[in-house]
Amino acid sequence: MMKHIEEVKNNLQDEIKLVTTLKDADQLKIKYLGRKGIINDLMRIIPTIPSDQRASFGQQINSLKVEITNIIEELIKKFSSETVPKAKKEIFDVTLPGKHPFVGKRHPLTQTIDDIKEVFARLGFDVAYGPEVESEYYNFEALNIPADHPSRTDFDTFYIKNDVLLRSQTSTVQIRIMEKQKPPIRIIAPGRVYRPDTVDARHSFMFHQVEGLLVDEGVSFADLKGVLNQFIKTYFGQNVQMRLRPSFFPFTEPSAEVDISCSICGGNGCSVCSYSGWVEILGAGMVDPNVFKAVHYDAEKYTGFAFGMGVERITMLKYGINDIRLFYENDMRFLSQF
């Protein structure tokens, strides 16, 4: 039996020398390793040999098989690299595109609101909400905007009936919260607001604001600057600069408009910042004592600050969106970009 094996080995050595092409190598593979090949022939005689020798014979065939396989594979490898292109084999094209799963997105305005909420959450601000349909008192009187006051003209408003209106600012939530809670207060209030503005690329009769309010003992304008600066650096980037300009809001005093250095031009001036290098992003100020009076807070004991920002405006700035109407058309080609 051993003789068989030796013979096979010798024959193979001779035949290897005759292999000059890939085809020769393939034929050799069939001859030795094929279903009707020499190795299988050897296997088939196993049952015919005495049972005490079967095991060792089997083992020898196996090691022979491994040896031959290695030799022939080596040959195939050698020749296949040399040979001219053979019949084309199906390739596994890893560059084909992946199959797209359904992927949803939050609306870009929600993303902005969520981002703002997150920054302020780190600063200890809770989220508060208030009604969108309000009585005049919350939208005006309590915010130190008496009827017929010149500043009312700054606040065009949709009315439902006498005394009931669609809030034109989220500042209403300040009053709602302070009526319910005693200081300290630290909230932000995101939500929809309404103003009868004719719709164009910059205006919408409905838009979103985020209002902020902090009231406590010993809160100063310097703290307002600190909190806003923290927000701006976290939200817009560490290199962004903040600038405050005096302004006027009936419910804060002193009042400020807050600008950030234009990230488009880096402060050198471009069309986004009207060549000023600065972009207005929010209004803020110290809560006016008259507002505290309306909610029966002791204005001598407590001080506080409030701020408000337009969500659409910030989102437009962030992504370079030039038309506010895009937010409400809900075109999938738009929504999928964010």
């Binding site: 302020f120 600063l123 200890g124 630290r186 100063s220 304008f221 600066n229 005096p246 005093e253």
Partner: peptide, 25 residues
């Protein structure tokens, strides 16, 4: 106070980060 702050310069008032620590819920 507003008049003084305005002319003194809002940007000359310091930027403080001394508000108390609070965890939001």
């Amino acid at each position: 106070i507003e008049e003084i702050a305005r002319i003194y310069g809002f940007n000359n008032i310091p930027t403080k980060t001394s508000i108390s620590v609070r965890g939001s819920v």
